[in-house]
Nucleic acid binder design. Sequence first.
DNA 1: CTGAAAGCGCTAACAC
DNA 2: GTGTTAGCGCTTTCAG
Lengths: 358, 358
Amino acid sequence: MYQRSARPTIKEVASAAGVSTQTVSRVINNRPDVSPQTRRHVQEIIERLGYQPSGLARSLILQRSYTLGVVIAGLKYIGPSRTLSGITRAAERLGYSLLLIELPQFDTNNILPIFQSLISRHVDGIIWAVPEVGDNRNWVNRLPLDLDIPIVYLTMRSRENISVVSINNYLGGQMAVTHLLEQGYRHIGHISGPLDWWEARERMAAWKDVLQQANHIVTDEHWVEGNWSSSSGARAIEKLYRQYPDMDAIFVANDQMALSVMQYACRNGIQIPDDLGIVGFDDIPESEFFWPPLTTVHQDQYNFGEVAVEETIKIIEAYRNEREPVRPKSIMLAPSLVVRDSSVRKRRAKGGESGKRK
Amino acid sequence: MYQRSARPTIKEVASAAGVSTQTVSRVINNRPDVSPQTRRHVQEIIERLGYQPSGLARSLILQRSYTLGVVIAGLKYIGPSRTLSGITRAAERLGYSLLLIELPQFDTNNILPIFQSLISRHVDGIIWAVPEVGDNRNWVNRLPLDLDIPIVYLTMRSRENISVVSINNYLGGQMAVTHLLEQGYRHIGHISGPLDWWEARERMAAWKDVLQQANHIVTDEHWVEGNWSSSSGARAIEKLYRQYPDMDAIFVANDQMALSVMQYACRNGIQIPDDLGIVGFDDIPESEFFWPPLTTVHQDQYNFGEVAVEETIKIIEAYRNEREPVRPKSIMLAPSLVVRDSSVRKRRAKGGESGKRK
DNA sequence: CTGAAAGCGCTAACAC
DNA sequence: GTGTTAGCGCTTTCAG
């Protein structure tokens, strides 16, 4: 069904054009030292034969593949997919191809074969887009491999001597809790993500710090740990209300869990935002259409991916040009707060001024 | 900061071991014709030097890269990402690498450079995971390229002479509407996806056909076109209620739009499922936590991706083995209906039997 | 301006 | 069993 059409090689083009392969090579690489008529002639032959130079052969001789290895986890979630989307676009824009590998779990231990496969394919750099969970970062360092290509890590805390790009989770948490305080809420609880995640710890630390700096007392009754999933959020909110009945607002570490908090409120006649103010995290596309629409911390995952690629390629180029060695650096991107109805008391709309004066 | 560690070549391993490169080659490929002690010796050297054969050089000589090109669109949506996740896992399992390209739009016209880049990198096959929108399928056929590798198309209607893998959207729509009829709803409206999408047309056709086969009259007042987004759903439901006030149930072409239908109902005091039964499509993870939980058609996007890879590789292998040419075929995967509260009238729970008898 | 020779890292075919 | 030769498709010397 598929007809095998031997695609032409440079040699065939050369003999068809009656020139040497070097001349063809010069033409396809736009070198200056070819006479205009030879160039035109060769280009015609190339056109006619549908010749396409082999990137493989080129990579081999140039010792440069213009390919990035991307290792990612959690593609079934919207966050990582958006990051990947940003990665693909930036790579395309900058002329790089992408070799994609997805880890079966966030904390996959068996990563040696992954690196080997990437190295064997001569990638020019690696983007490690796996969030920091438990000890998984160190597994990369402990690899019995000495890489001569740069790795850029995504979504982890900064460390010495490696390049990291992250979104500032702590800042996002601060914005969320500060907003709730400004809205006049006084008993602000928290449902955290799984605490072996760096991101979850950052968000929670911000919650605690902001409250304490505002002279609120924070106890272990005021928060519950979830695991990012809506169903864990459902369990968490039930427990949290039991141990913290005075709660009048809640900062939930992601929108999925916030969704089940809202479902719980619906079921139990709790009015949002009057009885309970809610702020989520992530700004998934659905958040705007929850009832009421959810206030949440927006992360630009797409741009995040773009920045990662730009950074990686910057390092590759500098490295190849053998200028002074590249100093690894940490880049922190700022999230933003999207205020919707779930955290803005309707009462305040009328009596807001007096509230402020007080 | 990065130390350039010339990675060893087969030649270096050979001379370090005091054998020819051929012998090293035999060892790394597990060929039988090497004496046990030579093999062991060479393996030690390989180990010590951290030698890693070059996949590039191998691909060049074997004329086989064990790499698949994946062209995808809409990575920022959860569906395509899940499909991609299935693709990555199946590829990994079957020993293939993935070169990923994302189209900026679903109906990107400028696809020649994409194919060229994939071909230049000697992919063994291509998975075209771009849904059929408008005329975009034909753009592939019209490419001035004569490929000698198989292409498998995802999410499109079957055609002669090409390999297609799809989820059966028509069947999904049938299941949704049949279910609503069984629940006793009699005035079933529809919010469709954008009708230049094949999937949207299939779902809508099923809605129409099932109703007509049940002797219901279907008019243009009974449906409105959306564009998959929640905000389009919000506009659509408003319009639909205006033109079809008797509506007592609705089949919405995806869950995002169904979400805004539920928001609309909430706002306007319409009780779900009593005043309005709702069935969505896709089964996004949040659907279970809408209020009430949403009945929807579940598509196993992950498995979909896996099947696509398996099929592609099957064709590649057959093709390479030069057995009889592979007959292109269409594979249709069946979705399933997930029944939740949004479509099951509470009244019926008590009077269900009498309803049936009638 | 153009061509011949060498070689990127590997394997197939054949000798010894 | 093991080594030699040739060559995958390309580019980089270096002659002419």
